[in-house]
Computed example of a mutant assay.
Amino acid sequence: MTTPRDLLFVAMDMESSRPVEQGDLSLALAGAEAIDLLGAEAISLDGDHIVPGHRPAMDDPLLDEAASSLDRQAMHESVGDWLWRRGRGLSSAYVAALEQDGEVTRQRGRGPFRTGQTVLVDSPARRRATDRWASDEPVLAALAAAVGIVDKRTESSPSVDDDAVATVLAAVNDAVVELEAVRQRRAIEDAAFDNIWRGQ
């Protein structure tokens, strides 16, 4: 399995202190893709810029799509730009892929318009992700912390030794913080707009 799929399994399996935002998860999934592409030597980093490498055949269709979408121009995009570009709607794409592969099912909802809840089935892929999570594997744990599945990492948490992977993880954290700032700004603007309409 891939890191993005493992992250999604964990996100759907774990009870977090707050709901995982789809935008945060999409950014983290894009980061997980970048980490797997680093591992496959499909990319390397020049500072914080992605440099495409050889074009391996990836076993996962979404990861293969990620490799195909790399910017192969001389001026390569930054990891942050990749996260925002690749991450758009990515959590929905991964959920759909899991559903297509029979890894998730939809429980029937009540009432005529309810589509039901997406639920993981017991599968070897889910068990592998659970084992990886239980081992406190640093990359998966750091991605989970970035989206709020668990509390933030501490000094005693296992660290990531690879500098390129650490750069991607830092970019994921920065992007999630930036997205939260955008949400807060919009909430303030919406509240101010509502107050104007109410004559306050």
Rank of each mutant, 00 (worst) to 15 (best):
D13A: 15
D48Q: 15
D131E: 12
V104W: 09
L90Q: 06
V176H: 07
P56H: 01
R198P: 00
V182R: 13
V119D: 09
V104H: 04
L45E: 02
D190H: 14
A145S: 12
R86I: 06
D48I: 07
A32P: 12
V182D: 14
H54C: 02
S159W: 11
S16E: 04
P4K: 12
L120G: 06
A32I: 13
T115A: 15
L8P: 04
S69V: 00
R72N: 10
E33D: 15
L37E: 04
P61F: 08
A141Q: 11
M14A: 14
L120R: 14
E65I: 03
G31P: 07
A171M: 07
R153S: 05
P52V: 05
R106L: 10
F9I: 10
W82N: 02
Q117R: 15
D131H: 09
A97T: 04
R110K: 13
L63H: 02
P112R: 15
V51A: 08
A129Q: 03
R186A: 09
P138F: 06
P138V: 03
G39A: 13
T167P: 00
F193Q: 11
E33C: 14
G199V: 02
L90M: 12
A96G: 02
H54R: 09
V121N: 10
M1I: 09
L63T: 09
L83C: 08
V160D: 00
L140T: 06
D24L: 05
W82Y: 15
D131R: 12
L62I: 03
A11R: 07
D162F: 10
A142L: 03
L27V: 14
R198I: 02
D101A: 12
G89K: 13
R153F: 01
E178S: 14
G47T: 10
S135R: 13
S157M: 08
L37G: 07
A141R: 08
A170V: 14
R186G: 01
L63V: 08
P158A: 06
E103I: 01
A97W: 01
L83S: 03
D46P: 02
S26W: 01
H49E: 12
G47A: 11
R186M: 10
M75D: 15
P4G: 10
V121F: 02
I196A: 10
H49K: 15
S16C: 05
D161T: 13
V79S: 03
S157A: 13
G111H: 07
G116T: 08
R55A: 06
A74E: 14
M12Q: 14
G87C: 09
Q22L: 12
D60T: 01
A11H: 05
P124C: 05
E99L: 05
I188Y: 03
Q22E: 14
V177G: 03
A166M: 08
R72M: 09
A66E: 00
P158F: 11
F193D: 14
H54Y: 02
I43S: 00
G47C: 13
L29E: 04
E155N: 08
S68K: 12
A192Q: 07
A30I: 13
Q100W: 03
A146T: 04
G31D: 00
Q117K: 15
V104N: 07
G111M: 03
R106Q: 12
V168Y: 00
F9V: 13
L7E: 03
Q200N: 11
A42Q: 04
A74L: 15
G89R: 10
V176K: 06
A129M: 02
E41M: 06
E77A: 11
V95F: 02
I43V: 15
V168M: 04
R18D: 12
E178R: 15
